[in-house]
Design a protein around this nucleic acid. Structure first.
Length: 479
RNA sequence: CCGGGUAUAGCGGAGUUGGUACCGCGCCACAUUUGGGAUGUGGAGAUCGUGCGUUCGAGUCGCACUACUCGGACCA
């Protein structure tokens, strides 16, 4: 049987070519397919199911914090987009435009939304009149379009799926609290659902969202030690409210501008899952978003009673609330083992005649390959316990990668040298000057990832210019 | 957007000095199998990425375009 190994579609080793490994996993785990337009990807059922699980869990969290879902138009008139100067400068270069309606050229062209701040503002201006109308806590699940020059599955699409929360508040303090609250929901989601450790921090002015006063970010480290921005939460102050003339009458009977936030995560999260947890056998999915948590594989399924026994176990696990697939197709067991490993199913349950005799089954963990014989009595609890253990194991492994590849540097020279050797995150002191940030990019090839909330005192002077330091900053090469 | 590479059946490849295409896997049928990608026999599947051009004749030569891919620049 081993001789047939070469007949199987292989995944490039990540050590040999990480980018190629990533592309192979996306295609071979059947997450994605290409369409005929560059950067426009097809989310296949297995890939989309991951997104559905992410959506469901996040949406529950949003609802618990009293957010409401809405749906706004996909087209934005050019004049509306241009109302906030920084915002339009940030997004106009990558907009796609609709210029014809039917056979007629339009009087004004419409941008296909790259993000919906302007639409939300236009709407909020109509519906917010009194302090009693606040806060407004809206969220939208939709796709957005940005005409990217280069594209890669999940990492950079021209059209991608996301959620964008847009909220309005009576005071700056309330808006700031909302920015932090959603930021924390993202960080918790990464840890508790995706098993991905994050660095929580604030973006520098250079890196923050076009039009925002402050941008908070969760930064993740991939297996190749490059950074991926996992989600952002923005505080807008009242800048947009002023630009869009949104006002409300306060309890003091005076007219005020409300304060605003926006926050979002996208299908890019899936890229993070792949590159944090995956290995040379393919995808490794964290159990809480895995479309299939347990795959049940009958062994010697032609034999009397085997299928029925497998069906019974699968039914019991489903009844216990688990996502289960039983594969009774006529492929050989070995083929199925390899197939579901490539697809990253966290746990495999094998059940054959010998097991049935002993009232047991075989459980095999995807993350470690560890195999154990487990009694069928109480199998539901055993499986749940093991899925939790897998989650913890994945998190611990990713946390180790993050920790081992984050290091302090005292000078630009040191950042340059260490970054070339090992990548990862370099942490240094920084004066707060954009010029130093630009030099860091030009000479060491890294951008500032964030100013971590948890600051460390590494010294008194900026690693670039030697002037008095204001913050400790993380630097890295980002996707 | 800049630079390198690639495009032949679902996938991976071969295709000579230009003559309408071959192999392995996969797919379909049947039989034997079934605890790590099973075996045999038979069968189906391609206007060679798209468009122009050269030629009696183009998978093969030329030009353009598109897409993929790697690197860089740009960008949330």
């Amino acid at each position: 049987m081993a001789q047939n190994k070469k007949q199987v579609e292989q995944i490039t080793d990540m050590e040999a070519d990480f980018a190629q490994w990533y592309t192979d996993v996306c295609k071979k785990a059947e997450l994605i397919d290409y369409s005929s337009i560059k950067g426009m990807f097809i989310y296949r059922p297995y890939g989309y199911a991951i997104w559905e699980n992410i959506q469901r869990i996040l949406d529950d969290a949003f609802k618990k914090t009293r957010h409401e879902n809405v749906y706004l138009p996909m087209l934005i008139p050019e004049s509306l987009l241009q109302k906030e100067k920084d915002h339009v400068e940030g997004f106009a270069p990558e907009c796609a435009w609709v210029t014809y309606g039917g056979g007629d050229k339009l009087e004004e062209r419409y941008c296909i939304r790259p993000t919906s701040e302007t639409l939300f503002c236009e709407h909020y201006a109509n519906i917010i009149h009194s302090h009693r109308d606040l806060p407004k806590l809206y969220n939208q699940w939709c796709s957005v379009l940005r005409w990217e020059k280069t594209s890669r599955p999940f990492l950079r699409h021209r059209e991608f799926l996301w959620q964008e929360g847009h909220t309005m508040h009576a005071t700056a303090q309330q808006a700031m609290a909302e920015t932090e609250r959603m930021f924390n929901i993202y960080a918790d989601f990464y840890k508790n659902v995706l098993a991905i450790p994050v660095v929580k921090g604030r973006k520098t002015d250079k890196e923050k969202f076009s039009g925002a006063e402050a941008t908070y970010t969760v930064e993740c480290m991939m297996h190749d030690r490059k950074a991926l921005q996992g989600g952002t939460s923005h505080y807008f102050g009242d800048g947009f409210a002023r630009a869009f003339d949104i006002t409300f009458t306060g309890s003091d009977n005076q007219l005020h501008h409300p304060f605003q936030t926006s926050w979002g995560v996208s299908t890019r999260m899936i890229a993070g899952i792949i590159m944090v947890h995956g290995d040379n056998n393919g995808l490794v999915l964290p159990p809480r978003v895995a479309p299939i948590q347990v795959v049940v594989i009958p062994v010697a399924q032609h034999k009397q009673g085997v299928l029925a026994a497998n069906q019974a176990v699968a039914d019991r696990l489903r009844a216990a609330g688990l996502r289960v697939r039983m594969d009774d197709s006529d492929q050989s067991p070995g083929w199925k083992f390899a197939e579901y490993e490539m697809k990253g199913v966290p746990l495999r349950l094998e059940l054959g005649p010998k097991d049935i005799e002993k009232n047991q089954c075989v459980l095999v963990r995807r993350d470690s390959g560890e195999k154990s014989f487990v009694c069928l009595d109480g199998i539901e609890e055993a499986v749940k316990t093991m899925l939790d253990a897998i989650h913890e194991g994945l998190y611990a492994k990713a946390a180790r990668n993050l920790e081992e590849n984050t290091y302090a540097c005292a000078s630009l020279e040191e950042v340059k040298e260490k970054m070339a050797q090992r990548g990862g995150f370099a942490k240094t002191m920084w004066c707060g000057d954009e010029a130093c940030e630009i030099r860091m990019k030009e000479e060491a090839g890294v951008s500032s990832r964030c100013i971590p909330l948890e600051q460390e005192h590494l010294g008194d002077t900026c690693a670039v210019c030697g002037k008095s330091a204001k913050h400790m900053v993380y630097w890295g090469v980002a996707y």
